[in-house]
Computed example of a mutant assay.
Amino acid sequence: MLPACGTAAQRPVTGHFNGATFFNPDGAPPRGFLDLARWKLAGEARDWPDSYPSPFAPDRPPRAAGPLRVSFVGHASFLIQGGGLNILTDPVWSERASPLSFAGPKRVNPPGIAFENLPPIDAVLVSHGHYDHLDLETLDRLWRRDRPRIVAPLGNDATIQSHRADIPVTAVDWGGVVPLGHGVEVVAVQVHHWSARGIFDRNAALWCGFVLRGLGDGVFFAGDTGFDQGQPFMRVARQHGAVGLALLPIGAYEPRWFMASQHMDPADAVHGFNLLGARQALGYHWGTFQLTDEAVDAPPADLALALNGQATDPGRFLAVRPGQVWSA
């Protein structure tokens, strides 16, 4: 039996929850099953190699110290270190982003940090319930080893606890603020996406991005998001000012007719970066799991074109590879 997203029992109706499911206010809903079939039957996915190794050696990060240090693990998993804290985003150390151990998208490169080389983890941020972002086996390993604070949007606590009931999860709505200690707090922010882990639980749990305040000049991790006319980025800039570092997805974007409402392409990501007013961006969500039709190396090539086309310094927006480390 596949694990389901969280339930909506006794949750009040809000501007993005109708009493049964969550939704994007004034935004496009996810495509339906007929559109999914149309996409898959078109058979236009580029072939990916069985192995796409990173040019960077696996990182062996130290315990968190003062300056902001960010290591890329792969896909949407980052280790963010600073202020005495070690924080993971959407940690996935499993071989597949799938409910099945023998089928589904398989890694084409190993994690940029071996699990045993992780420093003690203080906090884990889970953006939503899709299998390439919420990996129950990895969360179980982290909980058994480090007992980190786990923060996730509403409903994903039930998903995690359906796997292991004794894992406490701080479930937050958009705008929720969670102190992490050492003067650092995380804020769940509205992005444009959706959620499901099975056939019958679409949007039963919420999705979000996160802003970390108190680390450097602030860090924005977008999770997964469509561009949505730039609204997610304008909101962050309006509510939190110009953050120092933006972690933005740049992959899983073709075909555009299907993916545009839920995943940005590199041109969208550069536009969003400029709307944020951030000083630096790291591009992720590419080159580890094949989820969509574009070639494995298309995102960095398209990112270079977008940076040139939008007159943005390419040194300010890097398409990172597993094991790569960025420091403030």
Rank of each mutant, 00 (worst) to 15 (best):
L68E: 12
H193V: 03
G241T: 09
S51I: 09
G315Q: 14
A196I: 03
G244E: 06
P105F: 11
N203S: 07
N109H: 15
G272Q: 04
A45I: 00
T292S: 09
G309Q: 08
V320R: 01
P110S: 07
F33Y: 12
D201L: 14
M1Q: 15
W257F: 10
G214L: 12
P266K: 01
P168I: 13
V178Y: 10
L36F: 14
F258E: 03
A57P: 15
P299F: 02
P58H: 04
Q81D: 06
A4E: 08
V92E: 10
G83V: 11
D140E: 11
G176Y: 02
A278T: 09
L154Q: 11
I160G: 07
L68M: 05
R238N: 06
G315T: 12
P255Q: 05
A28L: 13
F233S: 02
V187H: 12
S162Y: 05
I199P: 15
A205W: 08
P62M: 09
V177A: 13
D265H: 02
A171N: 09
K40H: 12
E254S: 14
P3V: 12
L100W: 15
F17D: 03
S195R: 03
G155P: 03
Q161D: 06
G175L: 05
N203M: 09
G175R: 05
F115I: 08
R63S: 15
A311K: 15
H16V: 01
D140Y: 05
V73C: 08
A278P: 11
D157N: 13
P148C: 08
V184N: 00
R96P: 11
C208R: 01
L88V: 02
F78P: 11
Y131A: 05
A237G: 10
R238H: 09
P99H: 14
A295P: 07
G309F: 00
Y253M: 06
G283L: 11
V219M: 01
H16P: 01
F227A: 11
A9E: 11
G309I: 00
R96N: 03
V211A: 02
L305A: 13
L125D: 08
V191D: 08
L307I: 12
F233L: 10
S77P: 07
G66Y: 12
A42V: 01
F17Q: 00
V236L: 02
T225P: 02
A237I: 10
L282I: 08
T288M: 14
W207I: 04
P322N: 05
V219P: 04
V13E: 15
A114H: 15
D228P: 03
W286R: 13
A97E: 13
A267H: 07
D59R: 14
L139P: 03
F317R: 07
H75G: 08
A37I: 13
E44T: 09
R145F: 03
R321G: 07
T292W: 01
P314N: 06
H192P: 01
I199A: 15
A4S: 14
M264C: 07
N117D: 15
D228M: 12
A64S: 15
L142M: 08
M264F: 07
G287Y: 04
A28N: 08
Q231V: 09
R46P: 00
T138P: 08
E254W: 00
A114N: 10
I87H: 07
L282H: 05
W39P: 00
L36R: 15
R31E: 11
F23K: 02
L79M: 02
P322A: 09
D302Q: 14
